[in-house]
Amino acid sequence: MGRYVIRRLLQVIPVLLGATFLIFSVVFALPGDPIASMAGDKRMPPHIVAELTERYHLDDPFLVQYWHYLSGLLQGDFGETFAGGGVSEIIAGKFQVSLNLALTALVMETVVGVGLGFYAALRRGRAQDTLVLAATLLLISVPTLVTGFVLQLLLGVELKRSTGIDFFPISGAFDGWRSYLLPGFVLAGTSIAYLTRLTRTTLAETLRADYVRTAVAKGLPRRRIVGRHALRNALIPVVTYLGADLGTLMGSAVITETIFNLPGLGQELFRSIYERQQPVVVGIVTLLVLVYVLANLVVDLLYAVLDPRIRYE
């Protein structure tokens, strides 16, 4: 297993280098002069311009700038904004919101997706199975943009209007965990559908596996055959999907954050693009790439824990 871990760790490095380089070069190509836009309508005194240019290495060639950024990143420093604040501090609070949102989505995805998939797999070919499949098709097809507003309208506005139940906040992160319920579900939508399908297929496949036939031949109770012998095997791809999805969920939350006014990384990135705060833009995307890569790394290691065939390779 040691060698597997090391090999997997080494694979992370080129991906991180490549991704940060790509992001940095795109941001480098962004039009506009950050210093000029900082000053707004006024003209900036030349000596300040020179000082800022020096401080942010703006005159250096692209590769040198990238090098400065990368070495800072290695020390856990995401750089400074042009206003002088640390990017790390700006990101931290937003990261918390995005993480809460993604984790809420992940929990919903696990409960609903695995549950539905399990239910459908045990009723393969019957009406309930077809119904579940149709539901996943809808969940995959209806864009976040639509589910977001429709759920906001139905559960946030109409429910309150008609019954007085005010359980689902529709804007902002002021109500603790409840703030994340609706956006969490909206964000999880497609993943719920994919996970349902994945759970259904893998469980149905494992239920046909030879070792399940052996378990039947051993005279084990049905509950144990499904719940232990089949499920333990079927969960391997499911768990790995879930782990990898954390990174995806965090990176794809912009629209959900916008609909529900959640001050997360997506919103911050959006604002930073408009305000030409290149260091923040690079910082946020780099952070999300890191989350994605680390989540995948953890998943691969988890895979080895779950599947002894990999562990002892």
Binding site: P14, V15, L16, G18, A19, L22, I23, V26, V27, G247, T248, M250, G251, S252, V254, I255, G266, L269, F270, I273, V281, I284, V285, L288, V289, Y292, V293
Partner: peptide, 13 residues
């Protein structure tokens, strides 16, 4: 490398 970049954010960039 491309897979590691969140697609919506990448598109925004």
């Amino acid at each position: 490398v491309f897979f590691a970049i969140p697609s919506v954010l990448g598109a925004l960039l």
